[in-house]
């Protein structure tokens, strides 16, 4: 039976089962009904490592799916103060790249007009140009900064009294254990589908964790993997000519992006993750609706994404 292992992205999420159910429903909206095609699924859920409790299952996903609209996700950056110098330097550099310290020209609720011209011509997405209100952009970028830092630098974090995690160690284990469970006694293709920060975690595990099982194919969606501050901090050293996780991904890697997704900063990644010097990652552009282009549900509702996933699963 074919299988998809999902891993979610930045910010808080509804409970695991609900999140999985939602993602399956979004894909079905896009034309890919996994259960109808006999495809089983699982979710690597790590929101509870970073947040005290999940978002209410019946919350309005349009606004809160990525933690938007909830005051709790407007991260304070006090945690930066006590970091070692090297990590602080990373945060500063990443912060500058994300650009969220820039003052809004027209106040916090100002949203720039939609971009004119060809989105594809953008080299990298500029914070000021993202057509979202300033306060929302800042929340997203702060959440991204925190999640990326805590993961890449294996920070200690306590989401609830009495529980403390080494973030990278713990989430790597969650991912690898789920993959081991999903690959045991299974026939048919096994695909990892990751969104947002989940693409950083899944890539890191597939590339760098020795006991991570192999999979048939890989899909990244709305990924920040193209940002140099991210790939430069993968351990061991990142080398773009050999960055494709060939040892554990037997087939294709499809990367789906929207040029106005503020998290998929440097959206096209085939140049950054080559296989023996060849650009083999399939970068697939989609155009999500509305202003908030990072939503998993908008991506999963895209027919192009569903067609790729269907092919990866040999449906």
């Amino acid at each position: 039976m074919p299988h998809v292992t999902f891993i979610h992205g930045i910010a808080n999420k509804p409970p695991k089962e609900k999140l999985l159910e939602n993602w399956e429903a979004y894909l079905a909206q896009g034309g890919l009904d996994l259960a109808a095609g006999g495809v089983s699924t699982s979710m690597v859920y790590w929101a509870d490592v970073m947040y005290a409790e999940p978002v209410a299952p019946d919350a309005d996903f349009e606004s809160v799916e990525e933690g938007l609209g909830t005051a709790a996700t407007d991260e304070e950056l006090a945690w930066v103060e006590d970091l070692p110098a090297k990590e602080k330097a990373f945060v500063e550099s990443f912060r500058e790249k994300l650009g969220f310290d820039i003052e809004s020209p027209e106040g916090d609720h100002y949203a720039p007009p939609p971009l004119e011209g060809n989105e594809d011509e953008l080299e990298a997405l500029n914070f000021e140009a993202i057509p979202l209100p300033w306060f929302i952009k800042r929340r997203v970028m702060k959440a991204l900064l925190k999640d990326v830092h805590h993961y890449l630098f294996n920070a200690k974090f306590s989401p609830r009294p009495g529980e403390e995690y080494q973030v990278q160690d713990h989430i790597r284990r969650l991912f690898v254990d789920q993959l081991k469970q999903d690959t045991a006694n299974r026939e048919g293709p096994h695909v990892v589908v990751s969104h947002s920060m989940g693409t950083v975690i899944s890539y890191d595990c597939l590339k760098n964790v020795p006991d991570c099982p192999s999979i048939s194919a890989y899909m990244t969606v709305g990924s920040p993997l193209g940002i140099s501050e991210v790939h430069d901090n993968f351990k061991p050293n990142y080398d773009k000519r050999d960055a494709f996780p060939s040892d554990r991904v037997a087939g294709d890697w499809v990367n789906v992006y929207d040029r106005l997704d503020p998290v998929a900063f440097d959206a096209r990644i085939k140049n950054d993750y080559q296989k023996g010097g060849n650009q083999v990652v399939i970068d697939e552009k989609v155009r999500n609706s509305g202003k908030w282009r990072h939503s998993s549900y908008k991506y999963y509702g895209q027919q192009a994404l569903c067609n790729h996933l269907s092919k990866l699963l040999t449906l």
């Binding site: 039976m1 074919p2 259960a35 109808a36 095609g37 006999g38 495809v39 089983s40 040999t314 449906l315």
Partner: peptide, 12 residues
């Protein structure tokens, strides 16, 4: 033609 049977127990 469906290549596989749907999953049971998923309200299919």
């Amino acid at each position: 033609i469906a290549k596989r049977l749907p999953l049971v127990g998923k309200n299919q």
